[in-house]
Design a binder for these strands. Structure first.
Lengths: 135, 135
DNA sequence: GTTTGTGCAAATATTTTGCACTTGA
DNA sequence: TCAAGTGCAAAATATTTGCACAAAC
């Protein structure tokens, strides 16, 4: 059996552009939004490349993903790489990174209590932020 | 302003079939799976109708939905109609209904603490159940 | 007999992939 | 150089919708 060799990762204009569009923004953004932002910024990147780059960033642990109720994936370059959750504004995507020590323990306990192994939990909080409330 | 009148709900063979395929099963099932089950059971129902019926059941509060990591919706006729969460087997869909009183309070608190309103939280636990572990 | 419901096919929407062409190292 | 990356268009997925026909009540 042979494992696929990692292979060097090239620093391309597109990858820099996508990473740059995510960094410094504290909102979750969809691939389509990022694609549009880059286009209007005059630094166009193919949509497929945006998706491919985002996936790589997620795999590398630099970016977090979550899915909206209607199945769209949203991406965000989170400050902390450790496990955490999000409080996301349903209007603008603004996000606050949070952690819930109690929740972690509870999830693990409930899981094993029922004979389940390899427990993974998804905890996301959605709300309307102060700024969007007025709108 | 006029609200759309509810209109009577007709009890059709299809609706009975879909409801029946979900009741008595303690697993989350996809629309496609249900469609197939009904077909092989000799009680075929159009896929579009399966989707429409499931949506109606969800709206009526009889059925719970959740989305897998790869964006597929899973449906389950839950025992309790009140708010609760799920511990789902990622292999077979078997589910245990759970509640986390602590989580509820925590979610609400964290939300308002950051100035967000209309907080909604999604908490789902995924694991591998005892029976699927052997496989 | 109406009006609601169904089936099918076509339309949506998001994301993925094949392939010829570019480009970074 | 030349493997890795990109763009575009086509494919794949899951779900929704328009419309003619069927069937509850």
């Amino acid at each position: 059996m042979s494992t696929t060799q990692p292979g060097p990762v090239r620093m391309t204009r597109q990858r820099v552009a996508v990473a740059d569009a995510l960094q410094g923004v504290d909102e979750f953004r969809s691939a389509q939004q990022l694609h549009e932002v880059l286009r209007s910024r005059g630094d166009a990147v193919g949509l497929a490349t945006v998706y491919r780059t985002l996936q790589a960033l997620v795999d590398g642990g630099d970016v977090d993903v979550l899915r909206t109720d209607d199945g769209e994936s949203l991406y965000r370059w989170c400050v902390r790489r450790e496990h955490h959750h999000h409080l996301v504004c349903r209007e603008c995507g603004r996000t606050v990174e949070i952690d819930g020590p109690t929740v972690e323990a509870w999830a693990a306990m409930v899981g094993t209590e029922h004979g389940f192994s390899e427990i993974v939990h998804t905890v996301e909080l959605w709300g309307t932020c102060r700024d969007c409330r007025g709108a």
